[in-house]
Simulated scan of single mutants.
Amino acid sequence: MGVVGAWETRDRRWRVEVGGVGAIAWYRLIGPDGDARNLPSLSALSAALGAAGLDLAELREAHGVDTAA
């Protein structure tokens, strides 16, 4: 399945995409340089954001998400 939702920082430098199948979710963190990290859990996402100096609370829903499978 493709992306089902996304969040980004206000300046749009950082983006988190969420996808999954059934109860299995995945997270993709995309940084300002365009590099993407695939993360297996919300706790791994939170840790990766923290290492970048960000917090989940800083993200807002991104509009125009391509949810095509």
Rank of each mutant, 00 (worst) to 15 (best):
A68C: 08
A47H: 08
L42M: 11
A47V: 14
E61Q: 13
A47M: 08
A69G: 11
G20V: 04
D55L: 13
G22D: 09
A68W: 07
G64T: 07
L39Y: 06
Y27R: 13
V3Y: 05
A48V: 01
A47P: 00
L29I: 00
I30K: 03
E8Q: 15
I24H: 11
E17D: 04
D33H: 07
R28S: 08
L45M: 08
L59M: 04
G31F: 04
A51G: 11
V3D: 01
V18Q: 05
L54E: 05
T67P: 01
D11R: 07
S43N: 13
Y27L: 01
A57T: 15
R60Q: 11
E58Q: 15
D35N: 15
G2P: 13
L39M: 07
G34R: 12
L45N: 01
D66R: 06
R28G: 02
D35E: 13
R15I: 07
R28D: 14
I24F: 14
G5S: 15
L45F: 03
L59H: 07
G2S: 14
G19Y: 01
A69V: 08
A68Q: 08
A69T: 13
G20T: 02
L39P: 03
D33M: 05
V16T: 03
N38A: 13
V4D: 10
G19H: 03
G20Q: 06
D33A: 11
T9E: 05
A51H: 09
L42H: 05
R12M: 06
A23K: 14
V16P: 06
A6H: 04
G22F: 12
R37I: 05
L45T: 04
Y27E: 06
Y27N: 05
D11N: 13
S41P: 00
D35R: 15
G50F: 13
G31N: 10
L56G: 03
Y27C: 10
L54N: 06
T9S: 13
R37A: 10
A68N: 07
T9I: 10
A23R: 15
N38Q: 15
V16W: 00
M1Q: 10
W14G: 00
D55P: 01
L49A: 02
A51C: 09
R37H: 09
A23M: 11
A36E: 03
G64F: 00
A51F: 00
G22P: 00
E61P: 06
V16K: 07
L39R: 00
R13V: 11
H63K: 11
A23H: 09
V65S: 03
G53F: 02
R37E: 11
L45E: 09
V21M: 09
G31Q: 10
A52D: 12
I30E: 07
P32N: 05
P32R: 14
A57S: 15
S43C: 09
G50M: 12
R15Y: 07
D55C: 10
G22V: 09
V16L: 04
D66H: 06
T67S: 13
R60W: 12
W7C: 06
Y27K: 04
S43R: 14
L56Q: 02
P40H: 09
G31P: 01
G20Y: 01
A25G: 09
W26H: 10
V4R: 14
R12L: 10
V16Q: 06
L42S: 09
A52W: 01
I30D: 02
E17P: 00
A6N: 00
G31H: 08
R10I: 00
W7V: 14
A68Y: 05
I24S: 14
V4E: 14
L54S: 06
A44R: 13
G22R: 13
A47Q: 14
N38I: 14
A25S: 15
G2F: 05
